[in-house]
């Protein structure tokens, strides 16, 4: 089914207008990613009464409070196990996890690898802006080596995680990455991810001009988008182990993993999912 989305009014009905304005900074990419997700849901013809969004804590996690559907803004890092309980209690729900990078792979890292290992029937949208934005731009596990943050003023000396590598190695059946510049591709990947049984992940590289960008010579959203434009290359099928992002380095985009293996619901023998 294809639904043309001519204007924002179609999107607006899935946003809690009484919660606007949102808290996100000018130039931030989270709204862009949320927009892509809602377009994917609308185009996919999903019954929104059967879609639930779960998030943890952070700028990205605030999205759960803005969408007009059953939505859960939980604790830092614990959104995935919460979503796991929700999904298993009612397998008819389409459960979407909307998370920032620190929430997902730092404090929630253990839950992330285990949800992927189980091939839990959840779609994860991860907005990666390389730092903790809400608390003022601290370094995290996705911060590229050398990047300056408020807790690595003279440059981060830790190696960083590549989220697609982590997801693929842990067992995710669908892994894709795009930047906020690649709107159409991002939306298409989310659409695909939503249809996959098991654990699917779409990473969206996002500007955070207010803190990360400001400290790393990209002080506006536009600066960061320009960086994505010049540094991105689309390599569908690229080895997810080789798509790590260095400071101001190349950003490999595309669909890296799209495989089939029995999902948790199938393995456990209670696959009642209708989609």
């Amino acid at each position: 089914m294809t639904i043309e989305i001519a204007n924002t009014k179609v999107i607006d009905q899935y946003i809690r207008q009484d919660r606007m304005p949102h808290i996100w900074c000018p130039g931030c990419g989270i709204g862009t990613v949320l927009h892509a997700l809602i377009r994917s849901l609308v185009k996919g013809g999903y019954d929104m009464d059967k879609v639930a969004m779960v998030s943890g804590i952070g700028c990205t996690a605030r999205a759960a409070g803005y969408v007009k559907m059953d939505s859960f803004h939980t604790t830092h890092g614990r959104a995935l196990p919460f979503a796991t309980g929700l999904k298993l209690a009612n397998p008819d729900l389409k459960v979407i996890l909307f998370s920032g990078d620190g929430d997902l792979v730092s404090i929630g890292g253990n839950h992330f690898i285990h949800a992927a290992r189980r091939n839990m029937d959840i779609t994860v949208i991860c907005v990666n802006n390389f730092n903790y934005g809400m608390t003022g731009g601290q370094m995290g596990p996705t911060t590229p080596t050398g990047a300056r943050t408020s807790t690595s003023r003279s440059g981060n000396y830790e190696p960083s995680f590549s989220i697609p590598a982590l997801a693929a190695a842990s067992g995710a059946v669908y892994v894709a990455r795009w930047t906020c510049l690649h709107l159409r591709q991002l939306e298409n990947s989310i659409s695909e991810a939503l249809t996959r049984k098991g654990f699917s992940l779409v990473e969206a590289i996002s500007p955070c001009p207010t803190v990360y960008g400001r400290l790393n010579k990209q002080p506006t959203g536009l600066d960061q988008m320009k960086y994505y434009q010049t540094a991105s290359s689309v390599e569908n099928g690229a080895d997810p182990m080789k798509v790590g992002i260095e400071l101001n380095g190349k950003i490999t985009c595309g669909k890296f993993v799209d495989i089939e293996r029995p999902s948790y619901l199938e393995m456990a023998g209670f696959d009642k999912e209708t989609r």
Partner: peptide, 26 residues
């Protein structure tokens, strides 16, 4: 019913909250 062995107790507690909102006594 559903039994799931979680990766730790943080996850166990979070999961039973999620399940409660999914309509189950947990």
């Amino acid at each position: 019913g559903v039994y799931i062995q979680m990766e730790d107790e943080l996850a166990s507690m979070a999961a039973i909250l999620g399940a409660a909102w999914g309509g189950k006594k947990s």
